[in-house]
Simulated assay, not measured.
Amino acid sequence: MPLGLVALALGGFGIGLTEFVIMGLLPEIAADFEVSEAVAGYLISGYALAVAVGAILVTAAVIRFDRKRVLLGLLVLFIIGNLMSALAPSYETMMAGRIVAALCHGAFFGIGSVVAAGMVSPNRRAGAIAMMFAGLTIANVLGVPFGTLLGQQFGWRSTFWAITAIGVVALIGIATLVRSSAADSVHGTLRAELWAFRNKQVWLSIAVTILGFGGMFGAFTYIAFTLTEVSGFATSSVPWLLVLFGSGMFIGNHLGAKAADRALAPALISILVAVTAVLVVFAATADNKTMTMISLFLMGAFGFATVPGLQMRIMNYASAAPTMASGANIAAFNLGNALGAWLGGIAIAAGLGFTSPIWVGAAVTVSGLIVLVIASAMDRPDTKTPPVAVLAGR
């Protein structure tokens, strides 16, 4: 395994920690800045919006530059953003720091996917992408509970100081361990990168990502309410149940990559079928604690097993110019998150109960599965995309 993948994973760990750890620190942050918890929650939604925007605009802005240098620049942006959060004298400065850090998120994972794939042989590319995303899953399994504990014991700012330090270590790691030959490629123009979007399969891949991943996230968004109000768990149990979910994510990310490397389309179809089945079973048995724990683990496993394959699919269809397409797919993941959360919220507001987001998530996932089956049936060489395999210099 190339050591550069470890450095990319460390960067992914820091970015994942930045995104998720704040959920456990909102009460302390709200009290410190004297704002309501709802207003403090904008620090989460503002971050997500900035990720989606940054995945497209930042990637477009750096398309001409050396990928290794771009990754280093993005980590500098990440460090600055978290340093702003750690030092923030006001809520507004905190929000600005969150946005600055978020702008690097989508571009880092988008460009990092291309760089990771370029480090290994073609039949191991999904596994390399999964290695980078493993940092994100580990952030959920270990980083969020310990980051929350650190913030509760020593003040929430200590967590952001720790994340800043992780960013510095990741910066040094990528600078020393990622070889330029792995990060370099035939650097095209923005026009050449946008040409890839004339391939209908690129757009279908984005649609599958939004729907296939969005369904799972819609169910997850309101999971705390489901666990406490339906399953009957104590509020204090929720963080450890989320560790169970994160453990599923970690395992699913690894196994999903192996399946995608063997047979991409069949793997994605099978995984989305499994996600749908798990969500249906979860919704139907959410009042049973044992079944809830099993479903929570499997939801994380199958939900995140889609990620390497979905990222690989769009990069395959945009192989002559994968950078913008890869970044667009990272934005699609976040759009899926927003769509799933919005639809789940509508179901709750309609009085359908706290299992309704899970049912809605199952329906959204089925729609993604339908799009994927249609896209696979339509799969033919597209003459609009130059048939040149220059994925990360290969």
Rank of each mutant, 00 (worst) to 15 (best):
A318K: 04
A318P: 08
S319T: 14
A320H: 13
A321F: 03
A321C: 13
P322E: 09
P322F: 04
T323A: 12
T323C: 04
A325L: 01
A325P: 01
S326T: 00
G327T: 06
A328S: 11
N329A: 03
N329W: 04
I330R: 00
A331N: 05
F333P: 03
F333C: 03
N334V: 01
G336Y: 08
N337L: 11
L339W: 07
L339P: 07
L339R: 15
W342C: 07
W342P: 07
L343A: 15
G345P: 10
G345V: 06
I348C: 09
A349D: 12
A349W: 01
G351R: 01
L352Y: 09
L352E: 10
G353W: 00
T355C: 03
I358E: 03
V360Y: 03
V360C: 01
G361A: 03
G361I: 10
G361E: 10
A363R: 04
T365Q: 12
T365K: 09
V366S: 04
S367G: 15
G368M: 11
L369V: 01
L369N: 00
L369M: 02
L372W: 04
L372C: 01
V373S: 05
V373M: 13
V373F: 10
I374H: 07
A375Y: 03
S376W: 02
S376F: 06
A377N: 07
A377D: 03
A377F: 04
M378L: 14
P381V: 06
P381H: 08
P381N: 13
T383A: 14
T383F: 06
K384R: 15
T385Q: 13
P386E: 15
V388N: 07
A389R: 03
A389G: 05
